[in-house]
């Protein structure tokens, strides 16, 4: 089962510059682990030391913030569109 993950600019150094990657996972937690396997180092940018999504990072599944779904346990299905978006724009 494969989903598409859109990457923000600051994380593209892990993905060789790709703005979109394919990854696997039954839920967001598994997806993050799969991303870490493919792109070592990326997990600690997305999650804090307790494993939770960092507060300034928003993860969307088909446009919905996972904080309003089941957070890391939000289940995924084939073809879902995931976006990882910094909670702020930065650099005014």
């Amino acid at each position: 089962m494969s989903v598409r993950v859109r990457m923000p600019t600051p994380l593209r150094k892990f993905t060789n510059g790709a703005d979109e990657v394919n990854a696997q996972g039954q839920n967001v937690r598994a997806l993050v682990e799969d991303l870490e396997r493919k792109f070592p180092g990326i997990k600690e940018r997305i999650c804090d030391e307790t494993g939770k999504i960092r507060r300034f990072v928003n993860v969307y599944v088909n446009g919905d913030d996972i904080r309003f779904l089941q957070n890391l346990e939000t289940s995924l299905k084939e073809g879902d569109n995931i976006s990882i978006v910094p909670a702020i724009a930065g650099g005014s």
Binding site: P8, T9, P10, L11, F56, P86, G90
Partner: peptide, 9 residues
Amino acid sequence: DALHGLEGL
């Protein structure tokens, strides 16, 4: 870090 939550910086 490049990925941060400091709006404006």
